[in-house]
Design a protein around this nucleic acid. Structure first.
Lengths: 365, 365
DNA sequence: CTGTTAGCGCATTCAT
DNA sequence: ATGAATGCGCTAACAG
């Protein structure tokens, strides 16, 4: 069917080993035969068979990325970045979607090592630490976005404490005293860290923490709806809501729409993690950007480093560092307003707030 | 490192061939040894090496999905569906992102066959028909969403003529006579077909076609912005815009926001292909749903059929059918209004239109 | 610098 | 029903 190394060798009247050496460029062949083989191989349309090569070398030129879903914009970006970077290096990306389900994660992990992947970037559920730890002896692994506390795997994290702090402080600076927080499950790193950043900003500002304003929940839109209702039904509702649970954003927006709550006039809204449409939404939604693109790039860097180190068997390539942080960034758009200034009269269509939305566009690499 | 078939065979005191037969379940072994081998394999934690197996059988248990990007919500859904279906069958999905670039597509295709993928679902650019045609002799291929006219590969398409027709007719029924169309490049199947559906609906309604209202462009947000401006700057601007170029939607929304055009009061807006946030947007955006989930499922069905047929070498598994259509569906939300009724007074906040948005939610499988 | 030999782990043919 | 032998395509250790 396809032309093999043997075909090339025969056509060049050399042995397969010579052909192999010439084409893999080990430098163990004479300049002349080298070039000749390359030429002949090209003429014949020879393509090395990764399967056969893999059987011999134990490598597959396959790198896996395991994320929870593709709905989350951060995961989309990460998938695109990882794929692009890897492709440029001759790797193929195996994209797996685990749905944040420990069982699915576990199954997927086994299948992946079965396929002899050369590397793995995983957003862990946190429930398969032992397995990850074991696998990491065979294949370079980098954790992304979440840390699995049961491991000491190299991990690339967003700076969630900082991001939540920045966001909360921004709202405080706008004059908000009662700031609702909708955050992720407290059994995830990011969930805890974002809460801590929020708390710290409050503390620094001398605002006492009110647990009635704090809601944690699963990473689904429904969480946003439920929690938003609870917050808005409070006797003294918050003047701003910080949706630090990305998936919950849609739910919050639904509730504000249902109740005809004007943003930012009636309520300031600050969200976490950018999405393409946030900027076009009206009002454009201010956010804390987690730097998904940078996170993915760093994760790839670290993975390549480890894969390389493994290849040269120079230790484990960890450099002693196990955790990296990518800074968060506040992107102001139009969904937050100063609270110390009286709200504009609630009548005519607000002809104001659409100008600065484009200026704050984030620079992507 | 890992336990091999040989280890299992030794532990069971049989030959590797027997072990192989027992574990692959060819039925060529005695019931007893069969069960015994399975048990021992499990105890030893044996996992067959797909690479080695692949070298022998020419299969990889890898199926590739090649899409343009992951920003498009349809592609996200397709990736998730394909991955889920395949995983259930023991395949791994190789997700590739071609960026609608012919060169990238071509490169990717070669790499994929190098990896001996067992099947391919591809959203073709349309520029690599010959290559696809050639590859299809080695590996089952199903085209998705777009057809590559240079091939007669089995293709799963949205019913774009119908979708565009439905959407246009809906606007006409609401009383719109001047309906702007922003559609995709006319060198793509869907671009042409959606235009044709629009034209047909107009014709049937006895509305003469006005080319000033029709704009085709690349699948990027900028197209939407540019074309929307042109439409709105017309001496007689349209009362409704049908954005049949999905990616262009954001651009259109930006322009309407910039110009403070109220939807649907000042302008009715109908878009193509659903996105999660369309429903939560205010006003909720009415759409023509292309049935991404159904498309993906059907593509997988067809691919599996062909892979199966190839395995049993019963012809090419085409059943003589080369093209499938998945019907489109109109989902009414709040972005289109009757034009024959006078617009409500432009003052107070529109406390109306948020009720039916949830009712029209699409049922997913 | 090159050819010969030997496997990588598995499925499969040919014997028995 | 089982074992021995062969080879998938390639790389690498070992000679020359």
């Amino acid at each position: 069917m396809s032309v093999t190394l043997k075909d090339v060798a025969q056509a060049a009247r050399v042995s397969v080993s010579t052909a192999s050496r010439a084409l893999t460029g080990t430098g163990l062949t004479s300049e002349r035969t080298q070039q000749r083989l390359v030429r002949i191989a090209r003429e014949l349309g020879y393509r090395p068979n990764p399967i056969a090569r893999g059987l011999k070398t134990g490598q597959s030129r396959l790198v896996a990325l395991l994320v929870h879903n593709l709905t989350n914009a951060s995961f989309q970006v990460m998938a695109e970045v990882v794929q692009a970077r890897l492709k440029a290096l001759g790797y193929q990306m195996l994209l797996c979607i685990g749905g944040d389900d420990p069982q699915a994660e576990s199954d997927t992990l086994t299948t992946l090592v079965d396929h002899r992947i050369d590397g793995l970037i995983v957003v862990p559920t946190g429930k398969n630490g032992a397995q990850l730890e074991t696998l990491s002896k065979d294949v370079p692994i980098v954790c992304l976005v979440r840390r699995d506390d049961a491991t000491d795997l190299e991990t690339v994290l967003a700076d969630d404490p900082q991001g939540a702090y920045l966001g909360t402080r921004h709202l405080i600076e706008l004059g908000h005293k009662r700031i609702g927080l909708i955050v992720g499950r407290q059994d995830t790193t990011s969930g805890r860290e974002r809460l801590s950043g929020y708390v710290r900003a409050l503390r620094e500002a001398g605002i006492s923490r009110d647990d009635a304003l704090i809601h944690a929940g699963h990473y689904v839109p429904e969480t946003g709806a439920t929690c938003a209702r609870k917050l808005l039904d409070l006797a003294r509702p918050p003047s701003a809501i910080f949706v630090a649970n990305h998936e919950a954003t849609l739910g919050v927006l639904r509730v504000t729409a249902e109740r005809n709550i004007a943003i930012p006039d009636d309520l300031s809204l600050l969200c976490y993690e950018d999405m393409p449409w946030f900027e076009w939404h009206r009002p454009a939604i201010s956010i804390v950007d987690n730097g998904a693109r940078d996170l993915a790039n760093l994760a790839v860097d670290r993975l390549l480093h480890r894969m390389d180190a493994k290849g040269n068997s120079k230790g484990n390539g960890s450099d002693g560092v196990r955790e990296y942080r990518v800074g968060a960034r506040l992107i102001q758009r139009d969904s937050c307003r100063r609270i110390d200034v009286p709200a504009p009269a609630k009548s005519s269509k607000s002809k104001s707030s659409s100008s600065k939305s484009s200026a704050a566009k984030s620079a992507k690499v």
